[in-house]
Amino acid sequence: MNEKLTLIVGATTNRSRYAYFAASRLVGAGVPFVPIGIKSGEVLGKQIIDLRAKPHLDNIHTITLYVGTANQSEWIDYLISLNPKRIIFNPGTENPVFFQKAKAQGIEVLEACTLVMLSTNQY
């Protein structure tokens, strides 16, 4: 249905975390996702990719952030280098520096909630 391949940054196996909810809702909406973070494990059958390796990933449409502002600085340039169409700054991840750097590269930036966007068909 939807080919907006989404990179979930801050993916976790913890079912009570918003990043996990997002993965579940993306699956329900038919949106493919790639989990990436510093924790290992599986999210809904997909292995979490180690963010520290800064792997090359193709065709990322959307990056949805679940990493707090204080822990983003070393990942900003890497995430921008993936050339996503948009980055969603979920509540608690807002970062004016990252926001401006991404915008300067022509990336759509949203201070929004992935879960709300999915539940209101605005994703």
Rank of each mutant, 00 (worst) to 15 (best):
F33H: 13
Q72G: 08
E3G: 04
I76S: 08
A22D: 09
V27N: 14
R52C: 02
S81M: 07
L79Q: 11
R25V: 01
A23F: 01
V9R: 00
L65R: 03
P32K: 04
T12A: 10
H61G: 04
S16R: 09
N71C: 02
D50G: 04
Y20M: 07
L5G: 08
L57T: 13
D77N: 14
Y20Q: 03
L5T: 15
R15A: 10
D50H: 04
L5M: 11
I49Q: 04
S40D: 15
S40P: 03
G28M: 04
V43L: 00
P55V: 04
D58S: 13
S81D: 06
Q72W: 05
N83S: 15
L65I: 03
V9C: 13
Y18P: 06
Y66T: 05
P55Y: 04
G28Y: 10
N83W: 06
A19Q: 06
L79C: 12
V67M: 04
S24G: 05
L82Q: 02
A29P: 09
E42L: 01
G28K: 10
Y78T: 12
I49A: 08
F33P: 11
I48C: 03
F33V: 08
I38K: 13
I36V: 15
W75F: 15
D50T: 04
V34W: 00
R15I: 08
V27Y: 06
V27Q: 15
Q47D: 05
L79M: 15
G68V: 04
S16M: 06
L79R: 10
T64L: 01
L7S: 14
G28T: 04
S16V: 06
E42H: 00
D77A: 14
R17Y: 05
L57A: 12
G37Q: 10
R17E: 08
A22V: 10
G68Y: 10
F21L: 12
V43Q: 00
A19E: 06
